[in-house]
Computed example of a mutant assay.
Amino acid sequence: MTLLSEYTDAQLFAGVKCGDHAAFTELYERYWNVLFIHAFKIIKSEEKAMDVVQDIFTGLWEEASISTIHVSLKAFLYTSVRNKSLDAIRRQEVASRYLDSFVRHMAIGYPDTEETVSFNELVSLIDAGVADLPKQMQRIFRMSCTEGQSHSQIADELNITVHTVKKTITRARHFLKTWFIQFLLLFSLLHLLS
C-alpha cells in the first residue's frame, strides 16, 4: 500500500478535488509551515500570516472541485500566499489611513454631529456584520471575542473539537474583515467626495 506522503502534489490535489480529507491533510501538513514562513516574511505578523495561510487552505478545500490549476500546486500556493499577503498589507494601509484621519478629527476636541453619526453607524454596521454570520459561527465568535472564552472552553461547552473552534473563528474573522474593509473603502470614498 502506497503512503500518502509518497504521492505527488498533483495526485493529492486530484484527491482533494474528489473530497478526500486525507489527501487534503497531507497537503496541509506538507506546505503549512513553508507557506507560513513565506507569508510572515511579507506581512511581518504571525497572526496575519496564519490567517493568510488558513484562508489559502480553506479556499483550496472549498473550491477544489471547481478549481483548475495550470501551474504546479507548489507554485500556485506560493503565488496565492504572496498575493493574499500583499492584499492584507494594502487593506491594513487603507484602514490605518482611515483610523489616522479619524484620530486627527477626534483630537480637535469635539466631533461634529456628522462624525458622531458616522461612528455610531460604523458600530451598528459591525454589529450587523456579526449578526449576519451563520448562527453557530456567530455564537462561537461571540463566545471568543465578546466573552473572552478560550478555544478549549468553547469546545467543551459546545461539545466540538478545538480545531473546529479555531477554524470557525478564522472563517468568521475572514468574513468580517472582508466586509469591514469594503465598508471602510466605501466610507472613505464618500468622505472624500463630501
Rank of each mutant, 00 (worst) to 15 (best):
K84T: 15
E114M: 07
T170F: 12
L125N: 13
T170Q: 03
V103A: 03
F175V: 12
E47S: 13
V94T: 12
I126P: 04
D112A: 12
N159D: 09
W179E: 09
T68M: 14
E121Y: 13
E26F: 01
L86V: 11
R90K: 14
E147V: 02
V162Q: 06
F119R: 03
L193R: 09
M106S: 08
K166N: 08
S188D: 09
S67M: 15
R173G: 05
F187R: 10
F119E: 02
V162P: 00
F13Y: 05
D100N: 14
A172T: 03
S194K: 06
Y31I: 11
S85P: 00
K41A: 11
T178K: 12
V117L: 10
G148K: 15
F24T: 01
L3C: 10
C18S: 15
E114H: 11
L186H: 07
H174C: 08
D132H: 10
Q92P: 03
R90W: 01
L122C: 04
E157T: 15
Y7W: 10
I181C: 05
A95N: 05
S65Q: 09
I42C: 06
Y28Q: 05
T25C: 11
H163D: 14
T2E: 14
L60D: 02
V34D: 12
G19S: 02
A88K: 11
R171F: 08
K74T: 11
L35R: 00
W32Y: 15
S101D: 13
S80Q: 11
V52H: 04
M1S: 14
L4Q: 06
F40D: 15
R91V: 12
F175H: 12
F187E: 15
N159G: 04
M1Q: 13
I140G: 00
R171Q: 10
V34C: 03
M137T: 14
T146D: 07
W61C: 03
D87Y: 06
A10M: 03
C18V: 03
T170L: 03
S67Y: 01
F24V: 00
L186A: 15
T164E: 12
H21N: 15
R82I: 04
E93A: 07
Y7S: 07
S150R: 10
R30G: 13
T161E: 05
S118T: 13
